[in-house]
Design a protein around this nucleic acid. Structure first.
Length: 571
RNA sequence: CGGGGUGUAGCGCAGUGGCUAGCGCACCUGCUUUGGGAGCAGGGGGCCGACGGUUCAAGUCCGUCCACCCCGACCA
């Protein structure tokens, strides 16, 4: 391709709205253009990258035996009602009506639609297992779209769904996808980590996320440096040492704490460490009030809480609700004598705790010497806290670290959730009707492009891994007025193209400086410069990743480039 | 949804209630220049987010709305 024909425009200055490197560079390199919040045009250069990524995914999915399909973006509300997700999925689901007032969802994911296919086509165990996938546009009305295409409202996703006869088959399908995903992300040149994750609105029993490690990632991951344990913070479990087990319980006593309603204020006022405090938080879960008791220096993990309560909707109670439940304003709640609170869940960090400080259920009052089991009865004791760096690994007791990552893939064991709700059944060998056991597997195609840039860039621009670069090689004739250089560049352009190399020829009538800067910015892995060396039939070859420069003769150039491409693909 | 901020040329930004709304980059023409974002000269491009008000006069003041960005939506 000739640059002059690509409608490729680069920008010198960073766009004001772009915060993270990938967003800035994608805009500056002319890959994307924002249409509205969370909606982007993929311009020719950006689209080439996405197609490269799609191709890798396609090859690996096909190798794994999955079948590509294409499903409509619009899904009738009835299908979503069958599984209950029409109401459960909430505000994130884009909904539209047709002229007759019939309702449709703009698909954020396709379990319903795919299960509908399978229940209409699969009748016998002989047809199973099957794994169907598509690469298509997805719609999610994100609360806050952010970071360019990283969290967009419309984005490209590869989604796959497996159907098996039994648990064992489903397990094998899951394993196969897990391995396929590792190959895909490796081929995309990403440094990533697979972590245990919460299944969220997808449901199901178990899931793993594939995280690209990057400072700017929106996800936090707890990882063990000693063993293999790694989990999304939403799911991660950390063990802590027990607080003061040798103390003797003292009598509970109310103390005046005027105006002290935060943990820090109370801890300082009473001269106790914040770990000695127990916070009592009142939540409203599906219209029922529940209390959560947790150590003062720890945070409640609402994902864990929601799962523990099996709640659809979970919000913190408002000031009036707290007043009604505790008889006190916000800041003085304690776990005893609560009105209208159905359950008291206690974090296991307090399991053996003794002589705690809690709110006193009166304004400006706290309680000292509070002992679980004696002064209040938790309905349930379980892990409800967020892991922190320094907590102990649940598997090997080493000290956990917290890293940040970008979620580029997620694999789920769904079990029977959708097949039961939608009656996706088949007859087994014994002629008995059984539900398909499902799994689902997603990859954020557009997010991979952004994640790859987050991991691979410098102050000059993008450094594409060769496998997903929009072009493998850029040809740069230094002076458009030098006929020998131009001619040689044209020859090499034709030669490389016929040799199967993806080439961008910078044929613009621009000064050398602009061409060099642009080549660096758009991040083409191999640059061939036609300048001073041309008189001696030499071409300068420079790698974008490590900056290595070599002079290659005109005769050997195509072979050298092909060899280098092969070498760099393996990286 | 709550709080904060910004809307002026394709992009980045100036603009005291007062003349024909500017600057840099980008774009077009010409000349010079030509291995790391050139110089000079000339030029094109604006419903100043929308609507309503105040005023002799509004990009500027007031109100409403819209869009976009940031923080938050979790600690009692």
């Amino acid at each position: 391709m000739r640059w002059s024909r690509t409608l490729l425009e680069t920008i010198k200055e960073n766009p004001a709205e772009a915060e993270v490197a990938s967003h800035q560079l994608m805009v500056r390199a002319g890959m994307i253009h924002k249409v509205a919040a969370g909606l982007y045009d993929y311009l020719p250069l950006g689209w080439r990258v996405l197609r490269k990524i799609e191709q890798i995914i396609r090859e690996e999915m096909d190798t794994a035996g999955a079948l590509e399909v294409q499903l409509p973006i619009l899904a009738p509300a009835e299908l979503w009602r069958e599984t209950g997700r029409w109401t459960q999925y909430g505000a994130e689901l884009f909904r539209i009506q047709d002229r007759h007032g019939r309702e449709f969802a703009l698909g954020p994911t396709h379990e319903e639609v795919i299960t509908d296919i399978v229940r209409r086509t699969v009748r016998s165990y002989r047809q199973l297992p099957v794994n169907l996938y598509q690469i298509h546009t997805k719609f999610r009305d994100e609360i806050r779209p952010r970071f360019g295409v990283m969290r967009a409202r419309e984005f490209i996703m590869k989604d796959a769904y497996s159907f098996d006869r039994d648990e064992m088959g489903a397990e094998a399908a899951y394993e196969k996808m897990f391995q396929t995903y590792q190959r895909i992300f490796q081929r995309c040149g990403l440094r990533f980590k697979a972590v245990e994750a919460d299944s969220g609105s997808m449901g199901g029993s178990f899931s793993s996320e594939f995280m690209v490690l990057a400072e700017t990632g929106e996800e936090a991951i707890a990882g063990c440096p000693q063993c293999s344990y790694a989990a999304n913070i939403e799911k991660a479990v950390g063990k802590l040492p027990v607080i003061s087990p040798e103390e003797k319980p003292i009598a509970m006593e109310l103390v005046s704490t005027p105006g002290k309603h935060t943990v820090e204020e109370v801890a300082e006022f009473l001269q106790v460490p914040s770990s000695r405090l127990a916070k009592t938080l009142i939540y409203e879960a599906d219209k029922n009030l529940v209390a959560v008791v947790i150590r003062g220096d720890r945070e409640v993990n609402e994902v864990k809480l929601k799962n523990a309560l099996n709640a659809q909707e979970l919000v913190m109670a408002g000031p009036e609700q707290i007043q009604a439940a505790t008889g006190a304003p916000v800041g003085f709640s304690g776990p005893f004598g609560l009105q209208g609170v159905g359950r008291i869940l206690m974090d296991d960090s307090l399991e053996q705790a003794i002589n705690l400080v809690t709110g006193g259920n009166h304004a400006d009052t706290h309680a000292q010497g509070v002992n679980p089991g004696r002064d209040f009865q938790p309905t349930q004791v379980l892990d409800l806290k967020n892991v922190q760096a320094g907590d102990l690994c649940p598997k090997c007791r080493a000290t956990l670290k917290i890293e940040r990552g970008i979620e580029v893939g997620h694999v789920f064991k769904l079990g029977l959730k959708y097949s039961q709700a939608m009656r996706a059944v088949f007859l087994d060998e014994g002629g008995e009707e059984r539900f398909c056991v499902m799994g689902c597997y997603g990859i954020g195609v557009s997010r991979i492009a952004a994640a790859a840039i987050e991991q691979n860039h410098d102050e000059h621009g993008i450094i594409w891994p060769l496998s997903i670069a929009p072009y493998q090689v850029i040809l740069l004739p230094v002076s458009p007025k030098d006929p020998r250089a131009t001619e040689m560049a044209e020859e090499v352009y034709a030669e490389l193209r016929s040799g199967g190399v993806e080439v961008l020829l910078d044929d613009r009538d621009e000064r050398a400086g602009i061409k060099f800067k642009d080549a660096d910015l758009i991040g083409i892995p191999i640059r061939l410069t036609f300048g001073r060396g041309v008189a001696e039939n030499l071409i300068e070859l420079k790698r974008r990743d490590n900056g290595a420069v070599e002079m290659v003769s005109r005769m050997e150039i195509t072979a050298r480039v092909q060899a280098l491409c092969a070498e760099m693909t393996g990286l």
